[in-house]
Design a protein around this nucleic acid. Structure first.
Length: 706
DNA sequence: ACTATGGATCTTTTT
DNA sequence: GATCCATAGT
């Protein structure tokens, strides 16, 4: 294949980016500038110029993106595409670590703890240390620990500083690290951090991977963190053939440690970096692109670039405003109905929101209007209790040292093992320095009530049976063995309650996923299954275009595009989110997020908001997002010019009277007031007889603000 | 030991 | 509104 033939679909800059084979390369690719196409062709170009696909590493943001890219390269170069190493940072690192786990004191079958697992560990440690939960909120501590890890700060390196709690947190951190190690477990940060550690510690391993991955490509580079950059530096140390692709305007993961500095300083770390800008947008109409550009230009912290398009002007942006979020959702659905009637395919429509909680009201509306929909993300499938239960059984089989999983299943379904007995077992295990499972094998030597002992023996018997019967079986079969031996479904759920029915459906879905794994994987081991699903996201599972409208968060929509996009809940406090309005840099990230949302749209963009919104079971007034006001009015549909209601359009009577006016419900009667402080609630009766609970704090706030 | 109930707290986004 | 947790009752 000649070069001109390969590149007939690319513009000048894109071709240039493909042809720079050697040395560090930074591609600044604006939204919709054909970034994926460019890197796909670049890899194809490398291969057609004699570079062995085994020597190429491509790191993407999601597993799905990796799969898609592989498919696209396959179409150009054929089956050799399968020899390229492609995956997310986490999956790539996990693969490397499984090969060399012993070198850092782990075994190959280490487990990966998810958010909830790690939170349980931290909660346990905090309790053991007798620390007050108010100042040591587990979630907060985990955030801090994660940050330390990302910055390679070991527990012993944490400096006391002015905060007396810092040293205590360092102790929690230290215990946490040891706990995971003893359990042969890693968290998400460890996957990257330990790989870096491995490379630093073992020069021969580093040398091996430097030779193996002579050509490295990193997609969505703007969302990498320091630790990931460190890894890239190590991997690309010998040949410096590192190509990174990113857009500073689309950096939306700073909460996960993404550091825009990685883009800004790339050419300082890698000498002689070539830089290419892709500024022609092939996705959106002129109107949409201009609107998005006008929003993002309000950011100060950006490299600055101008996107342009040859596309048609297209339709104007339409605003939709409802009084309540329910009305907003209904209006959106009405709009979708009429679009579909005019020929738009439901699968080409996306509803994007800032937070998952918003999906609910739109789901209800979609049902009401009989519009088929799919919600991507939200409560993740593999984190549901019933799914985690089954998986925990599998984890204890693979990794007998995993105490977190063992504790989850030891009394699930209930078999008479209570808190007291558990404490006794843990104490014995800790004293002897062995895992809980080892302790179960040596029950005879422990002094405990015979009833408890019998219950433990019972569990250990079941565990042994499962383990024995599982040998050589496929994952689905093993799951069925677990379900049978434990009588899990019969004991936990009944067929009359709708909640239990949905749980059983989830278990069915889990069995299906295992079956799919068994049939699609060359060597379907339990280890590999657990590894895959622990790094799996709902976006990965999303099958893409179907005949249903798509609902997801803006974060989830990153990298995707749709003919028609509805940005919903465009209200100050939600988008930008209330937690991020107190500093300029946080607002700028929210604005980038809004920009990402806008630039997902190809043909039609709708933005909806409401004048009142639900908040924690209560209701408060809301005003349209400041970002919407940054869109020039000339780009909006005439009849729907921005109607901004201010807070003082709402009645502001004092709620503490026995007969009071509520800003939303109008005339109300207060029936009773309960709770104190922030949690203080009033039970009110509306004029139509309906009764509701509201948070007094917000009722009050509304009055104070005006 | 297990289950039902009420209270406190909270969600931002995710590999 | 939902979920997680502690407590009281069985």
């Amino acid at each position: 294949m000649s070069d001109s033939n390969i590149f007939r679909n690319l513009n000048e800059q894109q071709v240039a980016a493909c042809k720079i084979v050697e040395g560090p390369l930074l591609i600044l690719a604006g939204a919709g500038s054909g970034k994926t196409r460019t890197i796909t062709y670049r890899i194809a170009y490398l291969i057609s110029h004699g570079i062995s696909p085994e020597n190429i590493l491509a790191v993407t943001f999601t597993n799905k993106a990796a799969e898609e890219m592989k498919e696209r390269i396959y179409k150009i170069v054929g089956p050799v595409a399968n020899k390229i190493t492609m995956g997310t940072f986490h999956s790539t690192c996990s693969r490397i670590l499984r090969k060399h786990a012993e070198l850092i004191g782990y075994t190959k079958n280490f487990v990966i703890y998810d958010e909830k697992d790690t939170l349980n560990v931290i909660r346990k440690i905090i309790k053991e240390m007798d620390l007050p939960l108010e100042s040591f909120a587990p979630k907060k501590i985990r955030r801090i620990i994660s940050k330390y890890k990302r910055e390679f700060i070991k527990p012993e390196m944490v400096a006391g500083g002015y905060n007396p709690n810092t040293l205590k947190i360092a102790t929690v951190y230290s215990r946490y690290v040891k706990f995971l190690f003893r359990n042969n477990a890693m968290d998400f940060d460890d996957l990257i951090g330990k790989t870096v550690e491995l490379m630093r510690k073992c020069p021969e391993i580093k040398e091996y991977y430097n030779e193996k991955f002579q050509f490295i490509l990193v997609d969505e580079y703007q969302d990498t963190n320091r630790m990931q950059f460190e890894l890239i530096k190590l991997l690309g140390d010998k040949y410096k053939n590192v190509c990174v692709v990113g857009d500073d305007d689309q950096s939306i993961y700073s909460f996960r440690g993404a550091d825009i500095e990685n883009i800004l300083s790339f050419d300082k770390i890698f000498a002689n970096t070539k830089i290419i800008k892709l500024e022609e947008n092939y996705r959106s109409t002129k109107n949409i692109l201009e609107a998005a550009s006008n929003v993002i230009k309000n950011n100060v912290e950006r490299k600055g670039k101008t996107l342009y398009t040859d596309w048609k002007e297209g339709e104007k942006i339409e605003l939709i405003d409802g009084y309540s979020s329910m009305e907003e959702a209904n209006l959106v659905m009405e709009r979708i109905k009429s679009l579909v009637a005019k020929g738009t395919k439901a699968g080409d429509v996306a509803i994007l929101y800032r937070i998952n909680a918003l999906s609910r009201v739109f789901e209800v509306a979609a049902q009401k209007y009989r519009i088929p929909y799919v919600v991507v993300g939200g409560t993740r499938f593999f984190e549901r209790a019933e799914v985690k239960d089954i998986l925990a059984y599998l984890k204890t089989i693979v990794n007998p040292r995993d105490n977190v999983s063992l504790m989850r299943v030891i009394n699930t379904p209930p078999r008479g093992i209570g808190k007291k007995s558990m404490e006794l077992l843990e104490l014995e295990a800790a004293m002897k320095g062995v895992s809980l499972l080892k302790m179960l094998a040596n029950l005879e030597n422990i002094d405990m009530p015979s009833r408890a002992k019998e219950a433990f023996r019972n569990f250990y018997g079941i565990y042994g049976d499962i383990k024995k019967e599982s040998e050589g079986k496929g994952v689905k079969e093993i799951m069925e063995i677990v379900l049978n031996k434990t009588a899990y479904i019969d004991k936990m759920y009944n067929t009359t309650s709708p909640e239990d029915m949905s749980k059983m459906e989830n278990i069915d879905e889990l069995l299906n996923s295992a079956e799919e794994f068994d049939s699609l994987t060359e060597t379907p081991t339990l280890e590999e299954y657990l590894n895959q699903i622990s790094l799996f996201t709902d976006i990965d599972a999303w099958k893409g275009k179907s005949d249903r409208i798509n609902m997801m968060t803006v974060h989830g929509a990153k990298g995707l595009e749709f003919d028609t996009v509805f940005i919903v809940g465009a209200v100050d406090g939600l988008f930008p989110h209330i937690n991020n309005i107190d500093s300029d840099s946080k607002i700028e990230e929210e604005r980038r997020l809004f920009y990402v949302a806008m630039t997902r749209a190809k043909e039609r963009l709708y933005i909806s908001y409401s004048h009142v919104r639900d908040f924690r079971g209560s209701i408060m007034p809301s005003i349209v997002s400041r970002f919407v006001k940054e869109i020039p009015e000339k780009l909006m549909k005439e009849e729907k010019k921005l109607h901004v209601r201010t807070l003082n359009e709402f009645p502001t009577e004092n709620v503490s009277n026995e007969l009071a006016i509520h800003p939303v419900f109008g005339k109300i009667r207060i029936l009773k007031i309960v709770g104190k402080g922030d949690g203080k609630r009033a039970y009110i009766a509306l004029e139509n007889g309906e009764k509701k609970w509201v948070l007094v704090k917000y009722a009050k706030l509304k009055f104070l603000e005006e």
